[in-house]
């Protein structure tokens, strides 16, 4: 079996810069294939408010900035997209309505919200629109570039990705873009299973399940594997109690500690790694837990993420027959 060079990255959260770098990395790092392991959706929409006099007002990293016309906004649109944020043009009335919608949420509605009472409405529509639109743009960009490079990428979503993105991926499946969630795929002689779901988080994100359900999902996929010695498990959430799943401890009001860390990975994923012993486990989810570790014969990796700085963190893996021949973590 020939050595295959795989470039793996994860958690780019809406950053157009990171996605384009991911495609570029296949060429620069001379990788045979690319794997994008989930959490592609961004988290914030920056409203660009159309004022009565035709000027525009928006927030950029805590600063209120006034633009006289749309030409002045070209640069900021790109910057916001590169950092993983979305933007949305709206009138002051629409903006006030959205703010009011937020206020209907019970309890605190700032970043320290302990309990979030669920609402739906206009904001939901806006996010659905901007998230799917950006992924659609990325897929078109990728198809064009990958055709020229004659390379393939495998994509799964993550727990932060809304269900609607699956349809966008499926719509763009081709010889170069393979949607790999909840199924087994072949990568140059290696079988790979993909799972976007995570164990429960404090944020109640779109794809979460309890550990028992998660185990059943993984088992259902893993039982399809014929050769575990050469298999890749691309499970978005890392195994519990490892170097790859350490995150700052959160207080009751979700304030992070700078001095305490907790293991927040999945026990179901840990069990799967221990019982099936695949060649490699590819994980993400915990941005600050960039690392590599061995569990039995399985090498597990988490390349970490710095998407908000438009920095693409990844790992280049040289995978041979039943062995990880070499690897290097990248940051570009």
């Amino acid at each position: 079996m020939a050595i295959v060079k795989i470039f793996f990255t994860v958690d780019i959260h809406g950053s157009t810069a990171c996605f384009k770098k991911f495609i570029k990395a296949l060429e620069v790092y001379k990788a045979d294939i690319g794997i994008l392991g989930g959490d592609l959706s961004g988290k914030m929409v920056v409203p660009i408010i159309i004022q009565d006099d035709g000027s525009y007002l928006y927030d950029y990293m805590g600063e209120k900035i006034l633009a006289k016309n749309k030409d002045e906004l070209k640069d900021i649109e790109k910057k916001l997209a590169y950092m993983g944020n979305y933007y949305y043009y709206m009138t002051i009335k629409e903006y006030e309505d959205l703010k009011a919608e937020g206020k209907t949420i019970e309890g605190r509605i700032d970043e320290k919200a302990k309990k979030i009472t669920l609402v739906s409405g206009k904001l939901e529509d806006i996010f659905r629109e901007v998230v799917t639109e950006r992924i659609h743009e990325w897929m078109e960009y990728a198809e064009e570039k990958l055709k020229k490079l004659d390379k393939k990428i495998y994509i799964i979503p993550g727990n932060d990705d809304i269900p609607e993105v699956d349809e966008v991926f499926r719509a763009h499946e081709s010889d170069h873009i393979i949607f790999a969630d909840l199924r087994k795929v072949e990568i140059d002689g290696h079988e790979m299973i993909g799972l976007s779901w995570s164990n429960r988080t404090p944020w109640d994100t779109p794809r979460e399940a309890d550990e028992e359900t998660l185990w059943k999902m993984i088992k259902n996929l893993a039982d399809q594997i014929d050769d575990y010695d050469n298999a890749l498990f691309q499970l978005h959430v890392p195994p519990h109690g490892t170097l790859l799943d350490e995150a700052p401890t959160l207080s009751d009001d979700l304030t992070p500690s700078v001095s305490e860390v907790s293991n927040v990975g999945s026990t179901a994923v840990l069990r799967a790694i221990k019982e099936y012993q695949p060649l490699i486990g590819l994980h993400g989810h915990i941005h600050e837990s960039r690392g590599i570790q061995k569990i039995g014969r399985t090498i597990i990796v988490n390349p970490g993420s710095e998407y908000s700085e438009a920095i693409l963190r990844g790992v280049l893996l040289m995978v041979g027959d039943k062995k990880l021949k070499n690897y290097i973590f990248t940051s570009g």
Binding site: S41, K43, M44, V46, P47, D59, E63, K64, K112, P248
Partner: peptide
């Protein structure tokens, strides 16, 4: 300053 955020993991992971 006003931005809108959807519910997503890691949103509040910050030291003051």
């Amino acid at each position: 300053s006003q931005v809108f955020a959807r519910r997503a993991s890691g949103l509040v992971r910050e030291a003051n």
